[in-house]
Design a protein around this nucleic acid. Structure first.
Lengths: 112, 112
DNA sequence: CCATGTAAGTTCTTATTTGGAACTTACTGC
DNA sequence: GCAGTAAGTTCCAAATAAGAACTTACATGG
């Protein structure tokens, strides 16, 4: 069975993950919650390749989780913003954050 | 940057996802919460291939999220059970379940 | 008009992961 | 010895990801 076959699975967790469960997707959503909205911000912050960021953003927009809007007409420039639907991923990200803080403390001090 | 480089990332969400963010992992954890504990149960329920299930279980045991115990000595047979650490993924899975129920209603009736 | 810069992708090649199915091991029972 | 059970392992093909360069559409300055 393929991962993409999960979109109409009996289980809501599976249906959700079929949208956001590929690598880097949830980290892009994290960045949106942190206030980022530009393509290069996502690429720099997550560390994913530009192609993957592009592919993930397209998927998230198609799913109605992010909204792609132009913030400049000439030249055409876009930003990606969480929709209300997207805002509702907050509990999941908070849960992962709490888990990571408790169980995976940073072993060395963070550098800028 | 590779996905596996995230294990000592500044962000706890990233560190968490470096453990559980690969395809099928969270669905295996879902199955554990549902009471499943055997290898074939995970393979049948998730739909992932046996190789992927094996690889994911190994990773989860290494991370201390699941515990692999023998429930039979002859022949040697194993089951996988959530540790306390693993139990603490419940909020994340509940969040995805809630999101999926609200935003991705099943379009056709589920069959047995 | 040309060069440079910016932002957002797109393309191409290589490396890695996943999908699929068969196979292997260690037992039990007949 | 064969069939069955449970838990993996192996191999090959397909898909995805990593990495880096390239392209497009603008603006600006000389």
């Amino acid at each position: 069975m393929k991962w993409t076959d999960l979109d109409d699975n009996w289980c809501p967790v599976a249906r959700t993950l079929s949208l956001v469960g590929d690598r880097w997707t949830l980290l892009i959503l994290r960045d949106c919650f942190l206030g980022m909205s530009r393509f290069d911000q996502f690429a720099d912050s997550t560390g994913a390749t530009r192609h993957v960021v592009s592919s993930r953003l397209k998927r998230l927009v198609e799913a109605g989780i992010l909204e792609k809007t132009a913030y400049s007409e000439r030249p055409k420039r876009y930003e990606y913003v969480l929709t209300e639907k997207g805002q509702e991923f907050a509990p999941a990200l908070i849960a992962f954050k709490d888990w990571g803080k408790k169980h995976l403390p940073v072993r060395r001090p963070t550098q800028a």
